[in-house]
């Protein structure tokens, strides 16, 4: 299986942003991720698909060490970001997470104003020297989050007052504001209605110009629509990884095929 993913990898031409080698994740006694090897490219949308509980979200959370917040979670193996092991002792997860931003399943704006939501990251990381710079940064991020036009007149309104789709785009803007290099998205559309989903998907496609985007989704259609690369997880294993088109039209592994055609999952 690993051989197959290696074969697929030769197809790509862009720089490797994140490389994972032999990653294992244990939750207490549960072996949640088994021996995963994957290389994620820059300026590409990579989709993780698979049935629920297959470990795709767990693996995603390893990429910016969000699993550190869970006491019983143990990660072994290497995950290299630009060639640097993010699980190295010298790495401060705080600095790592500034480089690898994350958007969550449920929109989770802070109970603050829209402005303060976006300014939160730049403030804690000290990205703006003064108020004018911060204003500019907030506007730029909100534009990148494709929500500027909707909120520019009410930046002081609480972020929790927006609609679900707007909240999620606000969260994306918030993640973008820290100027990350990688954006991790954990089922970002699962709590949204179809119209809001379409807007976010369009936004993801746009984000690809600047960032390496990794998206976990339970919707194969969504993966097909937004991603260039797709990884299929099953029972903690990375079954297949390759060009999205190929995975969906001509999967090599029978399990992938079963999942795509709806026989498992």
């Amino acid at each position: 299986m690993n051989d197959m993913t290696r074969v697929e990898r030769t197809v790509d031409s862009k720089a490797i942003k994140i490389a994972a080698n032999d990653v294992q994740v244990h939750y207490g006694d549960t072996h949640a991720i088994k021996d995963v090897n994957v290389e994620i490219e820059d300026k590409t949308v990579t989709a993780f698909i698979g049935p629920s509980g297959c470990g795709k979200s767990t693996f995603l959370r390893c990429l910016n060490r969000m699993n550190d917040t869970i006491d019983i979670c143990r990660v072994t193996g290497d995950i290299l970001l630009d060639g640097e092991d993010i699980y190295d002792k010298r790495v401060d997860p705080v600095q790592l997470r500034a480089k690898v931003g994350m958007v969550f399943q449920k929109p989770n704006p802070f109970p603050k104003s829209i402005y303060d939501n976006v300014a939160y990251g730049p403030r804690i990381h000290g990205l703006a020297k003064n108020k004018a710079e911060l204003d500019e940064l907030v506007e730029k991020s909100l534009r990148r989050g494709a929500i500027w036009d909707e909120v520019k007149d009410r930046l002081d309104a609480p972020g929790t007052g927006l609609s679900g789709g707007q909240q999620q785009r606000l969260c994306i803007a918030r993640a973008v504001a820290t100027e990350p290099e990688v954006l991790l998205m954990d089922e970002p559309c699962s709590a949204l209605d179809p119209i809001a989903t379409a807007q976010v998907e369009e936004l993801i496609d746009d984000l690809r110009k600047r960032y390496s985007v990794v998206i976990v989704t339970h919707s194969m259609q969504q993966a097909a629509r937004v991603s260039q690369k797709t990884a299929f997880f099953h029972l903690g294993n990375l079954v297949e990884f390759g060009e999205t088109g190929q995975i969906f039209t001509n999967p090599e592994d029978p399990r992938t095929e079963s999942y795509i055609t709806g026989r498992i999952g």
Binding site: K99, R144, W148, Y211
Partner: peptide, 20 residues
């Protein structure tokens, strides 16, 4: 979505930060 298409964001990609 209109703002993306109308005002192309020309800001350069976030410059690579220092080593982790």
């Amino acid at each position: 979505m209109t703002d993306i298409s109308q005002t192309p964001d020309t800001t350069p990609v976030a410059k690579p930060k220092g080593s982790l």
